[in-house]
């Protein structure tokens, strides 16, 4: 990801996505899930960035075609392509991690490498909270339908109903957080002693090596790009 972001060559992020993330996903048998979710994440960005940058990129001169007062310009499209590539890589890498790693494993790995327990918990809870909030939103929409809100025939009203839920959902999530905190304390979460884990991590030598290689490679690449200015 770092490599893709620091590169000046605009095709690198996309290339990394195609030649690194996708093969990894195939290897982990996650291609369908990853592909579908990435598309869903990327599509709205793709549409808005292409349109906005393509037509309104400041200082662009190479007109591809014009539509009344609007003109699609080459520089804008290039910029949009660069940005999209980065988003694609970011989403792809993030989702790959999410799909391939059980949250419990992630938390354990983070803590074993000296990451503070509490912070690790926050990171993972944030990831896990999404499906939880989604389920809750569904439940509330159902309750609204049961009180006469028509959502089955009208897409517009349905999306409006969902939007109106953002406030209450965040609010009830905050209430949940309070209860979670109490529950955690009641089970000695912040006790000042070292903890044992129910799970065991299978961290092989090859995996450790790969991690170091990735870090060294990234630093080297960034240095090269900056040094090569």
């Amino acid at each position: 990801m770092l490599i893709g972001f620091s590169a000046r060559w605009p095709h690198l992020p996309v290339a990394l996505f195609v030649f690194l993330i996708l093969p990894l996903a195939v290897w982990g048998q996650l291609l369908r899930e990853l592909g579908r979710t990435t598309l869903a994440v990327i599509f709205p960005f793709a549409l808005s960035i292409t349109l906005v940058q393509g037509f309104f990129y400041p200082g662009a001169t190479h007109v591809i075609f014009s539509l009344g007062p609007f003109a699609l310009k080459e520089e804008g499209l290039l910029f949009a392509y660069g940005t999209l590539g980065k988003i694609l890589l970011l989403a792809g890498a993030g989702l790959l991690l999410l799909f391939s790693t059980h949250p419990a494993d992630l938390i354990l790995a983070l803590v074993q490498h000296g990451f503070p327990n509490a912070l690790a918990y926050i990171v993972v809870t944030a990831i896990q909270l999404l499906p939880h909030m989604q389920a809750k939103a569904m439940a509330i929409v159902n309750a609204q339908r049961a009180r006469g809100l028509e959502t089955e025939t009208n897409l517009w009203r349905r999306s409006r109903a969902l939007l109106a839920l953002v406030g209450p959902l965040v609010f009830s999530a905050l209430v949940d957080v309070h209860e979670r905190a109490l529950a955690l304390e009641a089970r000695a979460f912040s006790a000042p002693c070292s903890k044992t884990s129910l799970k065991e991590l299978h961290d092989t030598r090859e995996e450790a090596l790969a991690r170091w290689a990735i870090i060294v490679l990234s630093i080297a690449f960034i240095a090269w790009q900056i040094g090569g200015l």
């Binding site: 439940a139 049961a146 809100l149 959502t151 009830s172």
Partner: peptide, 18 residues
Amino acid sequence: TVAQMAQRVGFLFQNPDE
């Protein structure tokens, strides 16, 4: 639809927070 049924059947959910 559920919304139509709501004219005839009132429904109290098990969990009020939902």
